[in-house]
Simulated assay, not measured.
Amino acid sequence: MRRTSFANWPCSVARTMDLLGDWWTPLVLREAFYGIRRFDDFQQELGIARNTLSERLRRLVGAGLLEKQVYETQPLRHEYVLTESGRDFHNVLLAMTSWGDRWLSDESGTPVLTHHETCGHDAHAEVVCSHCRQPMEWADVTPRPGPGYPARLLSRPDIRKRFRLEGAPRDAASDRPTDTRP
């Protein structure tokens, strides 16, 4: 069955999900952050089918999140090392962890703590504004088309409504556009 591709959508969430594709891919990356580098170790830790793991590793290498490096020549064996792009994905996993800790943990508490070596405290991830360093809450942000958004789409009424470019209803209490997303 052919899978729909989101790789060319003008949306970073869609493009990221196109890369991830399924639940195994972020788990493979999680294991890489735990220090796993070799195929058999990924397979053992995750209990994933070998063919599925091969495909996920191939996809992550192809996308530039992992790099395949030879560690033995007789027989030829490779390990998978996080690239700069792969290491940068750690923030995505931390954000997912923070959300899961808040909404999915049971009464016994969070399953894994994140210890910040720099300050010596256990912490959780927060998304903050890169300019003022204040937390970025849903009610305080507005999506806008960026320089990479296809200009040809900006004339479509549904896109203009999504980005509240003109004529979007306003919330009188806050003078912010009302949420018109489906």
Rank of each mutant, 00 (worst) to 15 (best):
A95S: 09
R156Q: 12
M96E: 12
W99Q: 07
V13D: 14
A63T: 08
S12Y: 13
W99G: 00
R164G: 13
R50Q: 13
L113N: 12
T16R: 07
Q43H: 14
G64M: 05
A49I: 06
G148W: 15
F33I: 10
D158P: 01
L165C: 06
R170V: 14
E166G: 02
L82N: 09
R102H: 15
M96L: 10
P157L: 05
D22L: 07
C132S: 09
T180H: 09
L113V: 07
D175G: 03
D22P: 05
S130L: 09
C11I: 06
G120D: 15
V127K: 06
L76C: 02
V112E: 15
T142A: 10
H116Y: 12
P143M: 07
T110D: 07
T52P: 05
P10C: 00
K161D: 13
V28H: 09
R170S: 10
S174K: 05
S5D: 13
Y71S: 04
G21H: 07
L165P: 04
L165W: 10
S108P: 02
L76V: 05
D171I: 00
R181Q: 13
K68Q: 15
D18Q: 05
E67T: 11
I159L: 02
D40L: 09
L20V: 04
S12N: 12
Q134S: 01
V28I: 15
F89H: 03
R133W: 08
A139T: 05
A173E: 15
R170H: 11
I159S: 03
L113C: 07
L65I: 07
A63S: 11
C129N: 01
R59M: 08
M1C: 10
L113T: 09
A139C: 04
G35Y: 10
W23I: 06
H116S: 09
A95D: 10
C11E: 15
L113M: 09
P182T: 13
L82C: 08
R58V: 01
D18V: 01
L76S: 04
T83M: 05
Q43N: 14
P26R: 09
P147F: 03
R50K: 10
R164T: 11
S155D: 08
T16C: 04
V112T: 14
H131S: 14
A32W: 05
V81I: 15
R2Y: 13
L66W: 08
A172C: 01
I159T: 03
L94Q: 14
T83W: 06
A95Q: 10
Q134N: 03
A7F: 13
R77Y: 01
E166L: 01
Y71R: 03
P143L: 08
H90R: 11
D122T: 03
Q69L: 06
W24I: 07
D179L: 01
S98V: 01
A168L: 09
H131T: 13
H115D: 10
G35I: 04
T178N: 08
S155R: 02
C11H: 15
E137H: 15
S174Y: 11
P143N: 10
R59F: 06
R15I: 11
T97K: 05
P135E: 11
R181Y: 14
E126H: 06
S85G: 12
L93G: 04
T180E: 14
T110F: 02
R160C: 13
T110V: 05
T4Y: 14
L76I: 04
R152T: 02
A173L: 09
F39G: 00
R133I: 00
